[in-house]
Design a protein around this nucleic acid. Structure first.
Lengths: 126, 126
DNA sequence: AACGGAAGTTCCCTCGGGGGAACCGCACCT
DNA sequence: AGGTGCGGTTCCCCCGAGGGAACTTCCGTT
């Protein structure tokens, strides 16, 4: 897993719970993670309710969980102000922003090739 | 980055069930998908039981489901021979192989930055 | 005639991610 | 003294991915 090149490590290493790929794919595979990251990447900084509005039908509980997880991973920063009404601002950390590049690569692939994937799915079902 | 490169589409578009990012992240986020792709990328071609052995503790049922899903997406090819004992070979399609590049980018990011993520997690719990 | 291996299939169960709905503390406003 | 907006929390439930374990079919081997 510590080999220099991309897909060269032994696949079974990925079974370890702290395998880098498991950690990252596990996180970004969660239901709302991508929405939050993409929303923050566009807006820069958002408050809780702004995030709710942008992300869609997420419930406050789940949004809180998602944000706490990303904060725990050091990908999102949470700044609370002692104002009234309370104000909390979320933004990507530098680490979080550095993740945008590889995510973008996957996104680009998706944009280009998902039509093929969807066509293949339909063929498989038809 | 809201810069004109990677992450430019509206985030809420991602809510649509056929949004490219949802399709792809949904698939590679599944439990065994990455193991199968990585194993095939290393070996080129593998039979069912070889795959079982490499991927680890996966049960035959779940491995079958995973392979059928990837086959349905056009990412994996399944070739069955009328031999006896039966022989079935799995390999990546060209489409599946083209996915290795963006996955590799994410993998590289993971290799480089997961120590930070894990350190952050430990801080968050301690 | 029994055995074994390949490639699954079938049935049943468990576990937890995710969702719904309601509640909470605070400080203003009026 | 009641209402409002913010940023959550609490409790409860449901569904489906994933797992366990046994069974199956087809043939060749011993």
């Amino acid at each position: 897993m510590s080999e220099p090149n991309a897909i060269t490590a032994e696949p079974w290493s990925v079974l370890a719970p702290d395998c880098p790929s498991r950690v990252i794919f596990g996180r970004i595979g969660e239901r709302w993670t991508m929405f939050v990251i993409l929303a923050l990447s566009r807006a820069g900084t958002l408050r809780f309710t702004e995030l709710r509005a942008r992300v869609g039908e997420v419930t406050p509980k789940v949004l809180t969980e998602t944000l706490r997880a990303l904060e725990g991973d050091g990908l999102v920063e949470r700044r609370a102000f002692a104002d009234s009404p309370p104000r909390v601002e979320y933004s990507l950390t530098p680490l979080g922003e550095s993740l945008l590049e590889p995510i973008g690569a996957l996104r680009d692939w998706a944009e280009r090739h998902v039509p093929e994937v969807l066509a293949s799915r339909e063929r498989a079902l038809g």
